[in-house]
Amino acid sequence: MTRKRALGLIYLSPYIIGLMAFTAIPFIASFYLSFTDYNLMRSPKWTGLENYIKLFTSDRTFRRSLSVTLLYVFLTVPLKLAFALFIAYILNYKLRCINLFRTAFYVPSILGGSIAIAVLWRYIFATEGLVNMVLAWFGIEPVNWFGDPTNALFTITLLRCWQFGSAMVIFLAALQSIDKSLYEAAAIDGASKLRSFVFITIPLITPVIFFNLIMQMVQAFQEFNGPYIITQGGPLKSTYLLPLYIYDEAFKRFDMGYASAIAWVLFLIIMALTLVAFWSSKKWVFYAGDKRS
């Protein structure tokens, strides 16, 4: 038995070393760095709360960046999830070619963070690009997708909503596991499609909604490629999400201490929202028996 115990740890050894070297120690180090002034040239100088005080009192870029990030996340996550669920609901029906459609809807997610897709976005939403050409057929004036601060963030949001495929596949798997007799019983009792969707489908897939919500939120807070390639954070910093700000502070200005402080604020926001989601999940996530989890 003792031999077996040691063996388990031997199999885990790469993970344990990696956990220490690349996650646990960097995690603590980043917390420490956030209280220092460190530019890679001299050793870190302890400055106490100075970075945080500067962030919340005099740094207007940070305030702008934070509000843009929150707006982006609260726009992207619900839109993407609602759309993914809608399409999954339609697909969850005896349709021919369901696999074909599922594959087609999944393709954009495969290309996900690829730079090529951000490039494509730049072209199709250009002032004379594909989208405005199509809008012109319907007599709609060309829209300034990237030049206008209110539109620019929305255009980036569209890019992420376009990649609803993986959330959709997870929803679809959950929908397919729902017992069909529930719907038949509801139909006999005279429930409409909408009512059975709200009172049967939604409660039964809450675990998956919860999972998708957390994953998409954590991911949305870390969006980098889209705004970096498409708008470079502009115009007027309207797409300057916090990860871009952290990147600029850390790897362009090499202000590691300050960048760590921003990273920690971002981390704490994500943590707080995740905890709120977990805490509230007891009230709205429904785990039926032991079959589903």
């Binding site: 690349f22 960097p26 995690f27 980043s30 760095l33």
Partner: peptide
């Protein structure tokens, strides 16, 4: 680790 945002470990990793 699955839920931990990479953004928080990236800078020390770079220094390492």
């Amino acid at each position: 680790i699955l839920l931990l945002p990479n953004v928080v470990t990236r800078i020390p990793q770079y220094i390492l």
